[in-house]
Design a protein around this nucleic acid. Structure first.
Lengths: 135, 135
DNA sequence: CTTGACCCTCCCATCATGGGAAGGTTTACG
DNA sequence: CGTAAACCTTCCCATGATGGGAGGGTCAAG
């Protein structure tokens, strides 16, 4: 398989496959005489693994660890679980941060007339910045 | 005020103040003979405005628009509200995406023994699972 | 033998931010 | 006055994950 085909069937762009190779996330593939990268079925599975882990929000560094566990028949599932739970905690933090922003903005937007007049609590809040006395 | 002082009192780092100047988000300040940037009270307020908008997750491009509305006495609050609501929609999308990841991971982690054995539904899902549905 | 669809490497851009080098200025203190 | 600390300046580089695109080689079908 050329890089284009494995890209299509794994959902990882050719650009990214080359990048993952360059940072050592995946091993360099064999090449044809002309220098074209050649991939096997197992490379496709590896890339799909990476793709799914990315879809779950794991960073490439975390994926590096996941791959090393995946390739270790003597791994402890506790190690995988620990990685997953650390990532869940990170997601929780990011969700909380975004939700806080959202809540503040919704409150401000609700109080904004949204008409032709210039007066606006959103700008007022940004300019004067006292904590909202909402609820 | 030197840049360090206005940085401290606005919560925007000196590094970022110079950066905002370089991208034209704020106007270049006056300088002393030695080339030191000099700031006034109003610059501090401007930077606080920016800082608060950043805290609410607005991008610098959005902030550029917010500032232009802020400086326009003839603005319509509807324009501000539209910006805010677009940003809320963006936050909603990001929160939903992260929440989806979180939910999938929590489910997988719950089914993981988390002991010394290598068998693990998390790795199994990454290796064999269907791609996550992205909205 | 040309055309189009591949592939290659290398550089640049994103977005917001920080690190740090190399060097000039100001201030406070002995 | 001298010096050291604490400022300030500009310039370059790095992050993380991804894409764009230039400039050029390869391959297969017509």
């Amino acid at each position: 398989m050329n890089i284009g085909e494995v890209a299509r069937s794994s959902g990882v762009s050719a650009k990214m496959i080359r990048h993952y190779e360059s940072i050592g996330l995946i091993r360099a593939s064999s090449r044809t005489l002309a220098g074209y990268r050649q991939y096997q079925e197992r490379d496709m599975h590896l890339l799909r693994f990476i793709r799914r882990a990315r879809d779950l929000g794991f960073s490439l560094e975390q994926i590096r660890q996941l791959l090393s566990l995946w390739n270790d028949p003597g791994r402890a599932s506790a190690d995988v679980k620990r990685l997953a739970e650390a990532h869940i905690a990170d997601l929780d933090q990011r969700i909380a941060a975004l939700s806080d922003m959202r809540e503040t903005l919704v409150t401000l937007a609700q109080d904004c007339h949204g008409d032709h007049r210039p007066d606006c609590p959103i700008l007022h809040n940004l300019a004067e910045g006292q904590a909202q006395s909402s609820s």
